[in-house]
């Protein structure tokens, strides 16, 4: 059976540590937001780590950047992942650093052959350094700079050639399909689903008739649940994470959303196991 987790964030840390009626199967956080930190937040993180299994979703590896990997960061990261016994470490198929400057957000890599080769070699190098496979996430993107192929071809080639895992973000598939006019189910079918080790689900915001922004701040909408359900039926159980980055005021609604994910997950994978 797939486990269902929730993103661990400072704003809702108490819910994870003190709310007895809410017990996710695991928690996920960005290592960059906790590495090298002591004091109050280190204690909070240690308490959470005592209570829940952990996955980490990185922000700053910048796997698609032209410049060299940050080896100092990777060394610290490896130690951090070991210290917290992190089961899955994932990163974004994007770049966040350019000309030796971090931008702290996910920019789309040109869908090109040379970018595939570049990223494949970097993922392999990271996997060697970390001594573990990493999962690469299909990111949401609003423009396609210099694209010479479609996204599905790009993502599939990287995951297969790098021999890494795929973090399939179902909401991102929905958002990208809407923004760029392709069929979401067709995209899912083209993915190497046997390589998926982790799934993300989240809400988004439609900002105009032809554009959705992947915000992680709104409830998941029904078409994304439907895409999620149909995707699960094509693959083996893996952990599923509900991502929520802000709008925590109504935590009960988030718990309900979490429950809905759990229910869909159990139904889809119970049927698979029985049959």
């Amino acid at each position: 059976m797939g486990k269902v987790g929730l993103g661990f964030r400072r704003d809702i840390a108490d819910e994870f540590l003190e709310n007895e009626s809410f017990t996710p199967d695991f928690i996920e956080f960005a290592p960059e937001n906790w590495m090298g930190m002591g004091g109050y937040w280190k204690k909070v993180l240690d308490k959470a780590a005592e209570r829940y299994p952990i996955t980490c979703h990185g922000l700053s590896l910048s796997i698609g950047s032209p410049e060299a990997l940050d080896y100092h960061f990777l060394k610290d990261l490896k130690q951090f992942l070991k210290e917290y016994q992190v089961s899955i470490y994932s990163e974004h198929l994007s770049y966040t650093k350019s000309k030796n400057a971090h931008l702290y957000d996910l920019l789309p890599v040109p869908f090109r052959d040379d970018a595939i080769k570049h990223i494949v070699s970097r993922i392999k190098e990271v996997q060697e350094i970390l001594e573990r496979k990493i999962a690469i996430e299909n990111v949401s993107y609003y423009v396609t700079p210099g694209a010479e192929m479609d996204e599905a071809t790009f993502v599939k080639a990287i995951v297969e050639e790098a021999d890494c895992e795929l973090l399939l973000d179902v909401n991102n598939v929905y958002v990208n399909a809407f923004n760029h006019g392709y069929d979401a189910i067709d995209f899912i079918n083209k993915m190497p689903l046997d390589k998926v080790s982790y799934i993300h689900m989240a809400g988004h915001e439609k900002v105009s008739d032809d554009l959705i922004i992947d915000t992680h701040g709104q409830p998941i909408i029904d078409p994304v649940y439907e895409l999620f359900d149909s995707t699960l039926r094509k693959m083996n159980p893996v952990p599923v994470l509900l991502e929520r980055d802000f709008n925590f005021e109504n935590f009960d609604a988030i718990v309900e959303e979490f429950g809905q994910l759990k229910s869909i997950t159990h139904k889809a994978w119970e049927v698979n196991h029985v049959s």
């Binding site: 350019s98 970018a115 570049h118 423009v143 700079p145 210099g146």
Partner: peptide, 20 residues
């Protein structure tokens, strides 16, 4: 380095736009 100059240029332009 496998990246072509044109790909690097595109990435640099997008990042530069975001910064400026």
């Amino acid at each position: 380095m496998y990246l072509n100059k044109s790909t690097i240029d595109i990435q640099t332009q997008l990042a530069s736009y975001c910064r400026t």
